[in-house]
């Protein structure tokens, strides 16, 4: 049972992360580490600036 509870809480946390996009930078770092080893990744501020601009180029909110 505690295991199920832990999984439930983890899922809730992930839903919140997805809603806010707070996981984006960590995911970028993971991608960078696996796909471009040896290169320097962007720092959080730079990544955030670029991602925020892109996020608003298309339809991402509904009625």
């Amino acid at each position: 049972m505690p295991d199920r509870l832990r999984r439930l809480l983890q899922a809730c946390g992930e839903v919140l992360q997805g809603a806010f996009g707070t996981d984006a930078y960590a995911r970028y770092r993971a991608h960078h580490a696996s796909h471009h080893p040896g290169e320097t990744p962007k720092d959080r501020a730079t990544y955030f600036r670029e991602q925020q601009r892109e996020r608003w180029e298309g339809i991402n909110r509904c009625c």
Partner: peptide, 23 residues
């Protein structure tokens, strides 16, 4: 590409999608 195409856990995508459709 680490930007718009990113494999993401299902509950994170769920949160992302619900926040986008719910207005």
């Amino acid at each position: 590409n680490g930007r718009d195409y990113v494999p993401t856990p299902k509950w994170v995508v769920f949160g992302h999608h619900f926040a986008a459709i719910a207005g």
